[in-house]
């Protein structure tokens, strides 16, 4: 006769308990599980590879054409490519995907808990506010990091295998470290900011809408600054307006994606270059000084976490 799967009567529990120091991990594990089981998460992560895939296809065609014609154009082109700039461009062009990933896994992380009074469940258990926030932060940080790492590491591995002879590794021995630092910093920043925004709302979709609105408004401002910079630089004619160019190039970074791009430029040590290493006279906005990139990122991240800290309380939402 088969045994029942469980004793049906309630009994007290006198078994072992996990350490209180690991409660944040319980919260984080649940967030990871929820994020990674979303099909859209993996779709976005793969979609974030689009720039690298286009670049690989482009290089393949160039290589094949070069080989067919027997010219050394391929060697000249590939030899002149700055590989770290390709990572910067890939990272920049995928900002919209990072935004989507952030909204997908993070917008509701605290907002939905606010809306369903779940904070009462968390905080009535032996879980401190710091455990809850750390768990939620880690639960957002890791999926964002994975989402960013999938395309970046994919191209890095592809480059190591296929473009080694064109200086992919020798150009910058610390390229992998720099690329990892770039995505680590960006994931930290986004996780903190999204958590802060999420804590302000009682519905994930409202938090997501607010975050997306901020993102697009600030990106619009950044694009205006980019145009101002191009105008100040005199376009291709070279009539340069120094002060305006300086101001525009600094203000360009005052947006959610701008701060991350600034951080990426500082970490990679480049101002960037046109896509696919194509020759162009279009000026690039220079990388900000290290402190100017780091301080706003740290301030905004700390601000997000401070908001979340203030908002997370064991109070009931009466519907």
């Amino acid at each position: 006769m088969p045994e029942p799967i469980a004793d049906l009567s309630y009994r007290g529990y006198s078994g072992e308990h996990l350490s209180e120091k690991r409660r944040w991990l319980v919260v984080a594990k649940m967030a990871w599980r929820n994020a990674f089981k979303k099909r859209a998460f993996w779709v976005f992560s793969v979609f974030a590879c689009w720039y690298y895939l286009v670049m690989i296809a482009f290089f393949y065609v160039i290589e094949q054409v070069g080989i067919a014609r027997g010219s050394d154009v391929v060697t000249q082109l590939f030899g002149s490519i700055s590989w770290k700039d390709q990572f910067l461009t890939g990272f920049t062009y995928s900002q919209i995907v990072w935004l989507s990933l952030g909204l997908l896994v993070g917008a509701g992380s605290i907002a939905n808990d606010n809306g369903t009074n779940a904070l009462l469940v968390y905080l009535s258990k032996p879980v401190r506010k710091v455990d809850y926030l750390l768990g939620k932060w880690a639960g957002l940080f890791l999926p964002l990091l994975v989402g960013m790492a999938v395309p970046t590491l994919f191209f890095y591995l592809y480059g190591v295998v296929n473009f080694r002879e064109y200086g992919f590794v020798s150009q910058d021995s610390y390229l992998l470290v720099k690329v990892l630092a770039m995505i680590l910093g960006a994931a930290c920043f986004q996780a903190s900011l999204i958590l802060g925004v999420s804590s302000l709302f009682n519905q994930g979709r409202m938090a997501g809408a607010a975050y997306a609105a901020c993102f697009f408004l600030l990106t619009f401002f950044s694009n205006l600054m980019w145009i101002a910079f191009l105008v100040a630089e005199g376009g291709r004619r070279g009539h340069r307006n120094g002060p305006l160019s300086e101001i525009a190039s600094r203000l360009y970074y005052l947006s959610i994606d701008g701060l991350q791009i600034g951080w990426a430029k500082v970490v990679l040590g480049t101002d960037g270059s046109p896509p696919f290493g194509m020759p162009s006279r279009t000026p690039q906005i220079p990388a900000p000084p290290l402190l100017l990139a780091l301080i706003p990122i740290l301030l905004v991240s700390a601000g997000g976490m401070f908001l979340a800290w203030r908002r997370v309380r064991a109070v009931e939402v009466v519907k």
Partner: peptide, 15 residues
């Protein structure tokens, strides 16, 4: 809280 269980007044669950 390790030794206490709490049933809040309002509807609450983890979504």
């Amino acid at each position: 809280r390790q030794n206490v269980g709490y049933l809040p007044e309002q509807d609450c669950h983890i979504p």
